[in-house]
């Protein structure tokens, strides 16, 4: 129990140190990303993904509901 606490503590210290060292790098990368418009690509992909997910989600939900209703109708007939 003590050992795991210690391990946890040292891991946390390592993470915090690394994060502190990396923070300026991340900020720089983000800035670069803004400059090269990498983020714009990401947004375009996301937008098209959202549209397709919504439309296909709609179609799939219709298909599932239709399947269920037709099954119930078939049960009524049979």
């Amino acid at each position: 129990m003590r050992r795991s606490m210690k391990l946890f503590g040292s891991t946390m210290v390592a993470i915090v140190t690394l994060a502190a060292a990396a923070a300026p790098l991340v900020a720089q990368a983000e800035e670069l990303g803004q400059q090269t418009l990498g983020r714009a690509y990401w947004h375009v992909f996301l937008a098209y993904a959202i549209a397709w997910i919504f439309i296909f989600g709609w179609i799939i939900s219709i298909a599932r509901r239709l399947g269920r209703v037709e099954k119930s109708l078939g049960n009524l007939d049979g």
């Binding site: 418009l37 714009a40 947004h43 996301l46 937008a47 959202i50 549209a51 439309i55």
Partner: peptide
């Protein structure tokens, strides 16, 4: 409602850039 949802989510993605 599906298509207004698409418009409302993609509009901000465009607007942010």
């Amino acid at each position: 409602i599906i298509f207004t949802g698409i418009v409302l989510l993609t509009g901000p993605l465009w607007g942010k850039i």
